[in-house]
Design a protein around this nucleic acid. Sequence first.
DNA 1: ATAAGTTAATTTGTCATACAAATATAAAAT
DNA 2: ATTTTATATTTGTATGACAAATTAACTTAT
Lengths: 243, 243
Amino acid sequence: MNLEIGPINKSSLSKQVADQLQEAILEGTLKADDRLPTEEELAQRFQVSRPTIREALKRLAAKNLIRSRRGPTGGSFVNHLGTNELSDHLTTATTLFVSMNDVSLDEISSTRLEMESYCFRLACQHRTDEDLKRLEQHLIHQKNKNISPEEFCAADVRFHRAIADASHNKMLSFIMYTLIEALQPVSNMIAYRFREREIITSQHERIFNAINNQDRKLACAILEEQINYLQQLHEEAQENHQQ
Amino acid sequence: MNLEIGPINKSSLSKQVADQLQEAILEGTLKADDRLPTEEELAQRFQVSRPTIREALKRLAAKNLIRSRRGPTGGSFVNHLGTNELSDHLTTATTLFVSMNDVSLDEISSTRLEMESYCFRLACQHRTDEDLKRLEQHLIHQKNKNISPEEFCAADVRFHRAIADASHNKMLSFIMYTLIEALQPVSNMIAYRFREREIITSQHERIFNAINNQDRKLACAILEEQINYLQQLHEEAQENHQQ
DNA sequence: ATAAGTTAATTTGTCATACAAATATAAAAT
DNA sequence: ATTTTATATTTGTATGACAAATTAACTTAT
């Protein structure tokens, strides 16, 4: 009796619960900002204990699918997963992949050059006034010589992300966010030296103007220049490190 | 006393533990296939209870960073995260992103066309005999008319992945895996109809020959043909669905 | 002596219960 | 009317116990 046909449940209960809830989120039964039942209620519904439910919820929380708050109006809520929310999640995955698979800087930068060039092409075609405004703001902020290295890096990331967004292709943006992060460790290096900072920002300024003038070829040429420059800096740093 | 300077610990204990362990994995203190201390030991070290430790471990398990086994030789082990191991993790993230952000098929397919063309370019240059062998095997399997729709889909994914791998750029492969998955729901549609199956496999055969002959332009042209064909099928299906 | 079966030990998986901490709501006191 | 206080709700954490899986050691039968 109770002979279930097919693949038997081998995975742990907490995983099964997590999978079911994720399925509900994925197929739209649970929409963004919806509140899940309380942990006790979930425990009764799934006929498992509260610790098991909690383990399941933590699995979803690790994927950024839900957030939790305490108190009467608290509970677990479905997150709305935009590009930003998912990016930090993807970033750790990408960082891990790069570090555990000996991905060379050349592989990263050539991929990024190819994709960002495509972004530039689309951005030149579809950029709106708002896109240009955002780009300019990030550029101005990055030109400020009083900001800290950390702020400089953050502004750098924002600038490149803004270009990706200017392509008005969400899929492309999503992937570019990953690639931008993957190259960030190299970019970070240069944030501490004023001379290099100036070179980067001036390149950004020229890129901005090129996109503004819808000059795709020029924009891509400058991008290539910048990526080559970063690669060169990286090689120099490695040589110094070996000494 | 016990006045800790700086940002106070606001996040939950299980998250703090998870973050510390993840940090250890990321910086290499915990290498692949290393075994973590037992849950009880971790509880003592971090001075928290076992349920808290378990919640932390489930967070890492959800990210595919660790696996757990019971028994004397059991415990939690660090996963080696290659392209395959991370792909299912990325797949759910991508699927969620697509469904929650109204990403159009056009955005997906145009991005994929652009990137896969780049793959073709590199594959034509760098493909080895082993790459060709693998491609041919997947092709032969896909041509078999007796396989189930599910098998057909799986073979389809494997074929495109093999092309990505033939580029010999790990970063590019990693990203392509994501894009292949993103377009899969559309590809799945056609697996149930023999007529469409034949069209797809014949296209794959021509792509294989083109890559074999290092004819980049031809390969890309066929790819464009295939993606347009899928898009067309999708539109027809939607129209039928509306009736 | 070898092979098979049995037992014991270890570790994750699950459960039950209790209490702490945060937080919003309603009631009470100033 | 405003502040304070009490209270209810919900997640966060702790403790202890037992179940299930799995390996290693041991025992027994051939």
